[in-house]
């Protein structure tokens, strides 16, 4: 208790000095976040597991190229974002549980009358539907902002853009999300 957590950058220095096992500290520290990010990006937990592994291997291989002036977590999310976008573009993956209940007109009457568990499933499904309608780039931006809680400035650093650009992109994304959310908008009121 009361132990000061070692800085990521210090661990990186140790790994680069030959202490390969110290890399496990970084994996432990970020694996949940990265798997969660990948699951939301790819829409599938199993794919997310494999993707997250590939990301950590990539990070290890590229560790020598890590610039100490950047935060390790920022760099890690940059690699994660790029990896997921590559996967989505190459394989066109994004899995859904089932979207039978969604039609062009909106949710089916049967589904709207659902209770408790159905409602939870519904929220999850509709969210997945909305995420699937965003481009990989848009999805990554929304996740970094809303799921990971990064500031616009940090996102700009992760994606290699400016803060203003990120801000305006997020504005457009939110508008799109709101439009897609019209499907479920009416029934909550």
């Amino acid at each position: 208790m009361g132990e000061v957590e070692e800085e990521d950058e210090e661990i990186v220095r140790r790994v680069l000095a030959g202490d390969t096992d110290s890399f496990s500290l970084l994996v432990r520290r970020y694996e949940s976040k990265i798997r969660g990010f990948c699951a939301n990006m790819l829409g599938d937990r199993e794919l997310a597991w494999d993707a997250a592994q590939e990301i950590f291997i990539k990070v290890f291989k590229k560790l020598e190229g890590f610039r100490a002036e950047a935060k390790f977590s920022t760099w890690l999310f940059n690699i994660s974002r790029n990896h997921c976008i590559d996967l989505l573009r190459k394989k066109k993956i994004f899995r859904f549980i089932s979207f039978d209940f969604i039609s062009e007109e909106g949710l089916s009457a049967e589904f709207q009358s659902g209770t408790g568990v159905d409602r939870q499933l519904e929220a999850k499904e509709v969210s997945k539907f909305i995420l699937s309608k965003l481009s990989p780039d848009q999805r990554a931006l929304l996740l970094l902002r809303e799921f990971q809680g990064y500031s616009n400035n940090e996102i700009a650093e992760i994606v290699g853009s400016t803060e203003d650009s990120v801000k305006s992109k997020l504005k457009r994304i939110r508008k799109k999300v709101k439009e897609l959310g019209q499907l479920e908008g009416g029934k909550d009121e």
């Binding site: 949940s32 969660g36 999850k124 509709v126 909305i130 809303e146 709101k178 959310g181 908008g185």
Partner: peptide, 13 residues
């Protein structure tokens, strides 16, 4: 986000 809710997949344990 105003009226629209996005429910993300939670971080796994």
């Amino acid at each position: 986000d105003d009226k629209t809710k996005i429910t993300f997949e939670a971080e796994p344990p």
